[in-house]
Structures are given as C-alpha cells and as structure tokens.
Write a protein that binds this DNA or RNA. Structure first.
Lengths: 238, 238
DNA sequence: GAGTGGTCTAGACCACAAC
DNA sequence: TTGTGGTCTAGACCACTCC
C-alpha cells in the first residue's frame, strides 16, 4: 500500500502538468480535496506542502493554493542530481571515461573529508564525462569501503548511484554541496578539453546515508561554459 | 502568541547548539518531548521536521532523532541570502557604492524577465560591493515599480531588503536562482577590481511575493575567487 | 458572513529497531 | 516485547480574504 499523501501528491502533479485547472490557476480548496480523495484534511495538507516545496504551488492564506506555471516563467531544469539524470533531461549524447578505479588508503586529507581513520580503505573513482564529444566534467569520487565492498569497471561506466541504491540497497539521504570557482590543476588540463578557459567550477560534496553515516566525498570539476545550477529557495520563516 | 511549534523549534536549536545532549547525540523521543513541552505529538513533529529540513537532525525510524553535529563535519556557512547577511556572518568590512538609481521603461528583455508590459516603469539599481577594499560584486536589481513606489540613495546604500520587508511590509516568499560562469562584460571590467580574472560568476534571480507576483529580477556578478555557495539537499523520496 | 488556509489536539494503527 | 518514528483521522479554533 502506497502512502496516501504521496499518491495524492503525484496525482496533483500530473494534473498540474496537463493544465487541468488552467482557467482558475488555483487548486481546489483543501476541503474540496478531502472530498475528492476521501481523506482527512491533514493528509491533503501533507500533499500540498510537498507541492509547495517543489515549487508547483504557492499557498495564500484566506485565498487558496495558486498554481505556479513553470512555463510562464521559463524556469529551466532544476538542481543537479546526477550526471546521468542531467544528460537524460537535456537529451545530450553523453559518454563516461573511466580513468582510475582503485582501493587506496586514507591519507591525512581524506580522513578529514570522509571522517575515517588513517590508512582505512577507500574506493577512488576518477571519471571524465564527455558531452557531445567534448570532455567537460571531471568527477573524483571517494567511497568509504565499509559501505561499498565491491566496484567494477562496468558499474563505474554506467551509474554508480543505480548500483548503490538498487543493488546494495543503500539509502542516500542528504548531501552538503559547496560550489566554488578555482584555477585548473594540471590534472584538469590533462583530462579535460579546457580550450583556453582559465577557471573550473568545483562542486565538493559530502553524501550521507539515512543512518547519518558519511559514505562518500566527491569533487566534480566542470568547464565553466557547461555549468549551470538552478536553485529554488523558499524564504525561511522566523 | 508565538506559534507553538516554532517556539519548540527555536528552543531545540538552542539546546543542540550548546550541546545539551552531547553524550547520546540523540534527541529525546517524540513522546518524551510531548511531555516536556506539554503539547501534542503532531506539534512536536512539526518542530522536528523543521530541524530536519535545516540539517540539525536526521530522523531514523525505530531509533530516534540523531543530532547532526555541524562542527564535526566542518560545514561552512550555508546559502547566500543577502549581501548584508553574508558580510555580517563572515565579519568582513563591507561597503556599498551606488552607481545608478533610476526609473526606466521596460524594454523587450525586461518585459520577459519581470513579466510586465512594454514601457511599464521599473526601478533600476546598480551597486558595487566592496569587501576589504576590493570591488568584488556587481549587483543589478530591477524592481517592478508597482510594488516599490519610492526608493532613495540612502535605502540603496543600506539594505533594500530591510526597507521592503520592514517599511513596505512586502512579504518575500520564494526565489528562483540560476548560477552560471560567464565572460566579464565591459561594465564588469570598469566597475569591478577583476585583477586578471577572466570569468565572473553570475547569479540571476527572480523573486516572488507571497501572492505569487514576480516583483524583482536581479543579476549579481561576482569575482570568482570571492564566490562560494553552499547547498544542503535532502534526497527526494519517491 | 462565508470561505480559505494555519495551527493544534488526542487518539489510532502501522513499520521498524533493539533486546 | 517494548519503544521508536510514520501515517492517518475527525474535529476544533484562529487569522485572513473577499463580498
């Protein structure tokens, strides 16, 4: 049995995307929705809060839930999730080149980034992403070997996240990402087609499982012209 | 009367920040919290969901709410909000130079960015941000004059957002931001101390009020070495 | 005044973790 | 088996918008 509020959320998303309420540009009231879905108001409100979080609606007290027309505002694809998803959404020809796949020992730097002890084993994966024939992204992933016992060339060339979530059943829960712009390293110059660009965009992330253990550290280095990040922020209420 | 769940949220934040539960690194159970705060479980859960959203805790089913020790992971300041807030947090000497403050008519480009009609009046504000004596940020703001009837030199040199929220009582509700890296324009070179940097980080944002009206478009152009953005993302459950 | 969303309650049943 | 968080209910009162 699927969670009721998620079912309702998905149904509403679908209806919004096909412009089911185009004239009013409003959702039915919460009370009407309880009748439509034969459920309680709190359940409806859970679904609506999800819609608001994802930017589908904006709730206005005393009035109702206003549908935010994404096309009207010409919003582009939102937040990067994984390379595969990104290229899939944009319909790009993409290719992954595996440069290094090895078990290494944690050095000083990695102990602090992965919060593990010195000399503990870590998977290092170094991949270059080629889009439309140009090498534009360099991904350096480090996985705590405790959580990822085995990795193969095939897995790395497809999607590591598919493997982690569907095969190993790891529950990735949250991530902290840091965006900066840096000078290219010698490695960047060697592995990427930088074409005279004198900077790279660097995204450093720490990824956590749902039991709050830190299992991955990644540096993703992008050629600046191929980089775009979209953020949808709700104002914090205080 | 303050909302109860917000009061509880703020109290828990304070307790987490002073390491009130340092030994267990867990919050009391939801049931215990209902007794401590003399309230219902759903209200406690609202407060806990806020804590989770903000990255203070991670809830684990069957176990409890694990406190995420920010210091342990050496997390830096999170998401940019406004220039004033940013410099305040980092304890930097900051200065704002107003270059242009004028009412202009919407041209083709601005009609699409602010979703208003051609020739409608718009406030244009162009400011340079100086940090520790270096001009590193160029902010170009465009406000729909319908929502912001008056603007002065003083307001622009202090904080426009203070004025909008506290004086005009506008409720800023959500924003869509787009991050890219671009070549500097002639204007960037003239107004900023670029010092040989051959790129700028550009943040384009559309800002909405709580009745979903689009009232501001901004381009914030940063010298790349002074730019950093931090994102804390929870994985979407599907 | 009628209708809307925002908060809060007290209770129920379930799924999962630990023992 | 016990304790935890996850979902769901039916009802209450409030604050706000619109007429």
């Amino acid at each position: 049995m699927q969670k009721k509020y998620l079912t309702i959320y998905q149904d509403l998303v679908k209806k919004i995307e096909v412009n089911h309420w185009a004239e009013s540009s409003m959702l039915p009231s919460e009370y009407e929705l309880t009748e439509m879905y034969a459920t309680s108001r709190e359940t409806i409100r859970k679904a609506l809060n999800l819609l608001a979080q994802d930017g589908y609606i904006q709730k206005v007290r005393g009035k109702g839930s206003v549908i935010i027309d994404v096309n009207k505002f010409d919003f582009p694809v939102s937040g990067i999730v994984s390379f595969k998803e990104l290229t899939g959404k944009l319909n790009l020809k993409a290719n992954t080149i595996l440069h290094e796949l090895a078990i290494i020992e944690a050095d000083q730097d990695l102990t602090s980034k992965l919060k593990i002890r010195l000399h503990e084993p870590i998977w290092k994966v170094c991949r270059v992403r080629e889009i439309s024939g140009e090498k534009v992204i360099l991904d350096k992933d480090y996985f705590n070997k405790k959580f990822v016992p085995a990795l193969t060339k095939e897995i790395c060339e497809d999607s590591i996240y598919n493997y982690l979530e569907n095969e190993l059943k790891l529950n990735i829960s949250f991530a902290r990402k840091e965006f900066t712009v840096e000078d290219p390293t010698r490695e960047d110059r060697q592995l990427l087609d930088l074409e005279g660009y004198s900077n790279v965009v660097v995204i450093k992330s720490m990824v956590f499982l749902d039991d709050t253990s830190l299992f991955q550290y990644t540096e993703s280095r992008h050629r600046p012209d191929k980089f775009k990040f979209v953020d949808f922020a709700r104002r914090v209420k205080s």
